[in-house]
Amino acid sequence: MTASRAHETVLSFAYPSERRARLVADALGPEIGEIDDARSAAAVSRDGGAVRVRVTADDLVALRAGINSWSRLVEVAERVGKRGGRE
């Protein structure tokens, strides 16, 4: 991820167990680098029962788009995990 981006936010998602957080983080892993573009990038990390998505961007429009995209990806990862009985 480029360190010189002008804007940054960290989205943090807490889960009841480390296992659940790991499942969500693992589901997000393949998306890293795939939806980045010239104006924004993201990184995913996990610390115990928390998953963090750091979004950086050159401008606020790109930051908002990145936040929206990653929020939806997290939501999908959570729903898929629940349907698969992984809760």
Rank of each mutant, 00 (worst) to 15 (best):
M1T: 09
M1I: 05
T2P: 01
T2M: 06
A3T: 06
R5L: 05
A6R: 07
H7N: 08
H7A: 05
E8D: 04
E8L: 00
T9I: 04
T9P: 11
T9N: 07
V10R: 01
V10C: 07
L11Q: 07
L11Y: 03
S12C: 13
A14L: 03
Y15C: 00
Y15A: 00
P16Y: 10
P16A: 12
S17Y: 03
E18K: 04
E18T: 05
A21E: 05
A21M: 05
A21F: 07
V24F: 11
V24P: 15
V24L: 10
V24S: 12
A27E: 11
L28W: 03
L28S: 14
L28E: 12
L28N: 13
L28T: 09
G29V: 01
G29M: 01
G29N: 05
P30F: 07
E31W: 07
G33P: 02
E34K: 10
E34G: 09
E34F: 02
D36M: 08
D36Q: 07
D37T: 09
A38L: 07
R39G: 07
S40Y: 06
A41L: 00
A42H: 10
A42Q: 04
A43M: 01
A43W: 00
A43P: 02
V44F: 06
V44Q: 09
V44T: 11
S45I: 02
S45D: 12
R46I: 00
R46M: 05
D47T: 14
D47N: 15
D47E: 15
G48D: 12
G48C: 10
G48E: 09
V51W: 01
R52G: 15
V53N: 08
V55R: 03
T56K: 06
T56Q: 10
T56A: 13
T56D: 09
A57M: 06
A57I: 04
A57Y: 03
D58L: 10
D58I: 05
D59F: 03
D59S: 05
D59N: 12
D59G: 09
L60Q: 15
L60R: 15
L60V: 14
L60P: 15
V61C: 07
V61N: 12
A62I: 06
A62K: 13
A62E: 13
L63H: 10
L63G: 14
L63A: 14
L63I: 08
L63N: 13
G66A: 10
I67Q: 14
I67F: 09
I67N: 11
N68Y: 03
S69G: 13
S69P: 04
S71Y: 02
S71I: 02
R72A: 15
L73M: 14
L73V: 09
L73A: 13
L73F: 09
L73R: 14
V74H: 08
E75P: 01
V76L: 14
A77E: 03
A77L: 03
R79L: 11
R79I: 05
R79V: 07
R79N: 08
V80A: 09
K82E: 01
K82Q: 02
R83I: 06
G85M: 13
R86H: 04
E87M: 02
E87L: 04
